[in-house]
Simulated assay, not measured.
Amino acid sequence: MGALVWDPEGRVLLVRTTKWRGLWGVPGGKVEWGETLTAAALREFWEETGLRLRDVRYAQTQEAVLSPEFHKPAHMILVDFFARTDDPGVTPNEEIEEWAWVPLGEAAGYSLNTVTRTLVELALRQGEA
């Protein structure tokens, strides 16, 4: 579960984490027992970035089976969201090595992991802003 999030200036947040072998992606993580997908997105984003989200809406579902981009063998079902934040001040946790707020049209120029690349491409096709 992850989210592509826009700030008040219309930029999206990309992060480089320890889990994706130096590739850029979006914050996200696992759903806890008894937690809804939306609640998990809100919690994970807060834990990893210190950001509060609003206007969280479903974007897509993806499957990643033994992706060589991920730091360990895993079979993941990824539920992706689009969302917004009112405060772009990132307070990263230990998983985030680097972050950047970038215009959506420039996001594809980053070394994105495959699952994030499909999320960015979806946002571009749908004219998200």
Rank of each mutant, 00 (worst) to 15 (best):
T49C: 14
Q62N: 10
G105D: 11
L78N: 02
S111K: 13
W99G: 04
P103Y: 00
A40P: 02
A74Y: 05
L13C: 12
E48Y: 03
G89F: 04
T116A: 12
V31F: 00
T85A: 02
R16H: 05
L14T: 12
W6P: 01
T91G: 08
E121D: 14
A108C: 06
L23Y: 15
I96H: 02
V90E: 11
G127W: 02
L42T: 03
A41R: 09
V15R: 07
E128M: 12
D7M: 00
G109P: 11
A74T: 08
D55E: 15
R52K: 13
P68W: 03
V5K: 02
A107M: 04
L13M: 13
G105Q: 08
L122P: 00
F45K: 02
L124M: 08
E63I: 12
W33F: 10
L51I: 15
F82N: 04
P68E: 05
L13A: 12
F45H: 14
L66G: 00
E94P: 01
A64W: 10
G29K: 03
L53K: 08
T49R: 08
V120N: 07
D80L: 13
F81S: 10
A123R: 02
R57C: 04
L122Q: 00
L51M: 15
F45Y: 15
E48T: 04
A3C: 14
A129P: 10
G10V: 02
R43N: 10
P88M: 01
A83C: 10
E35S: 06
T118E: 14
W24E: 04
R54H: 14
Q60K: 09
F70A: 08
V115E: 02
L119E: 15
V31A: 11
R16P: 07
L51E: 08
G50T: 13
